[in-house]
Amino acid sequence: MSAPLVIFAVGNPSRGDDALGPELLNRLSVWLELNNQQGTVELIEDFQLQIEHALDLQGRQLALFIDAGQRTPTPFGFGPTVAVDRIGHSTHALEPGSVLQVFRDTEACEPPPAFTLCVSGQSFELGEPLSAAASEHADKAFEFLCALLANPDATDWASRVI
């Protein structure tokens, strides 16, 4: 039985602010344990989103994608994600909307309601730690995440779009 909510956090922990996704996932893992909510949420971490993540959407009621962003709103943006019939020029990573589209096309049904939390980063060099600015953004994003998880409902989340 799948947990009703799946959270994907993507990024490379060794590439500066690309670690924002994994960082938030680690904090969430602790928070879920403290609040005894592990069974209601599945956390999935990866370097990039890929086609097989469409399979992780099976049986879910709600999905959340967490990623670092560049030239995106600070400290973070949050909004609904819809399936998009578009994949970038690189094979190596999909956008959240493309993962939803792969689900739609291969499962022949609509994906669950999905949202993306995009946390602003600044520097993405190999071997760099999280920047000071990104750490601040992560703190604010985590506070927001906790509020989301207090009521994991698509209608409620839609009212919190930033």
């Binding site: 490379n12 590439r15 370097f47 990039q48 990623d67 670092a68």
Partner: peptide, 24 residues
């Protein structure tokens, strides 16, 4: 041109991919 490059499956996006990338 891209088809020729793709045949080799080069690794062009090592390990990071944050949102907000520009299009091709």
């Amino acid at each position: 041109i891209e088809v020729a490059i793709r045949a080799f499956d080069p690794c062009l996006s090592c390990a990071t991919h944050a949102l907000g990338k520009m299009p091709l």
